[in-house]
Computed example of a mutant assay.
Amino acid sequence: MSSDEILVGYDGSADATVALEWALAEAGRSGRPVRLAYVFEWLTVAGWVGPGIAPGVWPDDTARREVEELVRRAAADAAAAHPGRTVHGEVFDGPPALVLQERSAEAGLLVLGSRGHGGFGGLLVGSTAVSVTAHAHCPVVVVRDSRPEPAGPVVVGFDGSESAKLALGFAVERAAQRACPLRVLRVSQPGRLSTDEAAATLADDRAATEEAVAPWRETFPELAVTVDVTAGSPAAELVEASRAAQLVVVGSRGRGGLRGMLLGSVSQQLIQHAHCPVAVARER
């Protein structure tokens, strides 16, 4: 596996197919190869299910061959539908969340659908979604639904933290690849500050954000960048911004995160509630 590859969690479900389409579009812009990863979990209790396979107690080699054929066909169809793009498929064994976390160490980007079935049953529901995104070794994109991407901006949540600076760089690169605007959104929580103190806080936040954005404006002078600073709930404001966005980018943790947390509350809420794909940026 190449460290530049886009790794897609794939199980043949509708949501996995949406994630694959998103990854293929990203590959078309970046030139990266795509690898479909089906994680085959052999269970030793009743209730095991594979794609198109009846539940059973002991899976056999037939089930494994059917999974391999599913992945082979999906990779071949994707390559045929997108000439010039390199698409591979691979079947792994083990617990899906853990395997994807481990394989992400050798990928440049991990793309997941919002839900799955079979080998990914319940993968992106509740705490497991947070676990995969929190523990991955590369940036993760969660694709939530099948609607076409709007012609809106890439939106990035920024709070001045080191994690947010990584997210800003990731968002700039995606906006430049897409030739679309970039909206940098900083949401302050003034709390019990007086009106004057709150206004001063917002002014300081705007100045600090403009300073962080300035080098990127110089590097990508053709990129239309808007900086918005407001007061409110960061998660709520970013979820609302996602309605008109084609991608929302956040860091894995912000200033409000508790020490030792691997994924901040804003990132978690966006994964659950955003109206467009969500990227959680981190260093590989």
Rank of each mutant, 00 (worst) to 15 (best):
S194L: 03
V213Y: 00
E41I: 02
R217V: 14
V130P: 05
K165A: 15
H275K: 13
D205M: 03
E102T: 05
L36N: 08
L166V: 02
D205G: 04
V140M: 06
L124Y: 01
Q189L: 04
P96C: 11
C180A: 07
Q177P: 03
R144F: 07
T62W: 11
V172A: 00
P277C: 15
Q272V: 10
L247F: 14
T195S: 06
L20D: 05
L98H: 08
V45L: 07
Q101A: 11
A175S: 10
V132M: 08
A16K: 02
G12E: 01
P150C: 15
D205L: 03
S161T: 02
G28C: 11
A224T: 14
R85G: 07
V154H: 01
G52Y: 09
L123R: 00
R35H: 01
G84I: 08
P55H: 04
E240G: 14
R284A: 14
P55D: 06
S267H: 11
A236H: 11
T195C: 05
D93W: 06
G232A: 09
L258G: 10
V39G: 09
P190C: 04
A235H: 12
A129L: 09
D60P: 04
S163L: 02
A171V: 00
A235K: 09
Y38Q: 10
H88D: 15
P51F: 12
H275Q: 15
R284M: 09
A23L: 03
V229H: 02
R186E: 00
E149V: 07
V213P: 01
A97R: 00
A14Y: 04
V184I: 02
V227S: 12
V71G: 01
V142P: 13
A76M: 04
L193Q: 02
V99P: 05
G119E: 12
G89D: 05
G89Y: 05
T133E: 01
G257Y: 06
P55A: 06
S146F: 11
G12C: 03
T17C: 06
T219E: 04
P150D: 14
E162F: 09
G28T: 10
